[in-house]
């Protein structure tokens, strides 16, 4: 098994972990963490893809850009978490499922 295949498998595994986390967690912080795992999987996949198509530089520069964008999203997510805690007094997602129907 080549390194690339292993890395690709790793990306897929990370991706599955991230999605699984989003499916089960009820904590706001854990949601942000799961999102991060999800995006890290995508980062890994981009680097692997760059390598696979013999354009490692391209893959890496894409990854750098994604990290920047992703950080902003993470910051916003965390800021919302702080605000949720402040307004609702809890991080529990069950308190955040009032809008239904």
């Amino acid at each position: 098994m080549s390194t690339l295949t292993i890395l690709a498998g790793g990306a897929l595994a990370l991706f599955a972990v991230g999605l699984y986390g989003l499916l089960i967690t009820r904590n706001m912080i854990k949601v942000v963490v799961a999102l991060q795992i999800l995006v890290k999987a995508a980062l890994l996949a981009l680097v692997v893809a760059g390598k696979a198509s013999d354009q490692i530089n391209l893959g890496q520069s894409l990854a750098m850009t994604v990290i920047v964008a992703d950080t902003v999203v993470a910051v916003i997510g965390l800021a919302l978490a702080v605000q949720v805690k402040r307004v609702l007094g809890t991080m529990d997602l069950t308190e955040l499922s009032k809008l239904r129907g």
């Binding site: 990306a11 991706f15 991230g18 999605l19 989003l22 999102l35 999800l38 995006v39 999987a41 995508a42 980062l43 996949a45 981009l46 692997v48 893809a49 760059g50 696979a52 198509s53 354009q55 391209l58 893959g59 894409l62 994604v66 999203v73 997510g77």
Partner: peptide
């Protein structure tokens, strides 16, 4: 964010 992560995975597949 989940949606955009899915798109990124797709981009990686296309690039590869």
């Amino acid at each position: 964010a989940v949606g955009s992560a899915l798109v990124l995975m797709g981009i990686a597949l296309v690039l590869a």
